[in-house]
């Protein structure tokens, strides 16, 4: 078996005292592309944030393992160095720090001290990734995400993904706010990474992204759990029929987290 394996077992997560995830189980292996869909407010971003270690999210029980290593014991930077990457739904804006300096620090963080990437090599790699994603070169010298349009932020997340080449990538609504051309470019970037060593979890509301990136597995989240899993065919049915049939099947009335007491 190639690549890494991310195992999420019976994960419970609270935010500010309120339980959001109520027992999520999911396993992503190298080479597999998983999609998570689900109505607003059902815990998709919470899952992504808990995996990466967002300070506001508290894991109350369950486990997350990467190749058997306890991810929950790791600091955020250690998770990244272990091979996890999260393209965030709402990336932070950091004025004063250029995109290029940030990228270089990120790459060097993954390398040994004393083995920093040579500047010219870095610039070449960054330029070619920016070309591939059709990003305006000026972005490298602009402050990180500051004043970026929605689409620019998303492309910047994929730029980081391409340059850091993680084992497991989690993409939280990477398609939201993208026009159709940008969507194609972003999908092209993600597909470039597709190989037997790279596992990916794509959180999305829309079939249109999955038309370009065919998932191997599709999961539906409601009420802080994965309530249905299937193959790529599930996407079409959701697009055509919405979520009601799943709710009926499972006897769910209100799908969001707060309303299921």
């Amino acid at each position: 078996m190639a690549g890494s394996t991310l195992e999420i077992k019976d994960l419970h997560v609270e935010i500010e005292g309120q339980e959001i995830l109520k027992g999520v189980n999911l396993t992503i292996k190298g080479g597999e592309f998983h999609a998570i869909m689900g109505p607003n407010g059902t815990g998709k971003s919470t899952l992504a944030s808990a995996i990466m270690g967002h300070p506001k999210y508290e894991v109350t029980s369950g486990s997350i393992l990467l190749d058997g290593e306890d991810v929950l014991e790791m600091e955020v930077d250690e998770r990244a160095k272990a091979g996890l990457f999260l393209a965030m739904q709402y990336p932070s804006e950091i004025t004063g720090v250029t995109t290029s300096d940030f990228l270089r620090s990120s790459i060097n963080a993954h390398r040994e001290k004393g083995d920093e990437i040579p500047l010219m090599k870095f610039i070449k790699e960054m330029d070619s990734a920016m070309d591939y994603l059709e990003i305006d070169k000026n972005m490298a010298q602009r402050y990180l995400n500051a004043g970026f349009s929605g689409g620019e932020k998303k492309r910047n997340e994929i730029l980081q993904l391409m340059m850091l080449k993680p084992e497991i990538g989690i993409l939280d609504e990477i398609d939201s706010g993208l026009d159709i051309d940008a969507l194609k470019v972003v999908a092209k970037g993600i597909n470039k990474l597709r190989n037997e060593n790279f596992g990916c979890l794509i959180i999305t509301h829309y079939q249109r992204l999955l038309d370009y990136i065919t998932p191997d597995f599709v999961h539906v989240m409601m009420q802080g759990r994965v309530v249905k899993s299937g193959g790529a065919e599930l996407v079409e049915r959701l697009e055509a029929e919405g979520y009601d049939w799943i709710k009926q099947e499972l006897g769910i009335e209100e799908e969001t987290v707060g309303n299921n007491a």
Partner: peptide
């Protein structure tokens, strides 16, 4: 902000350094 920078592998100290210089 710290979380965002650290999620790319940057250590807490280095992330703080970047934010302060910024």
């Amino acid at each position: 902000q710290l979380y965002y920078l650290m999620s790319r592998g940057i250590s807490q100290q280095e992330a703080e350094r970047l934010i302060i210089h910024g």
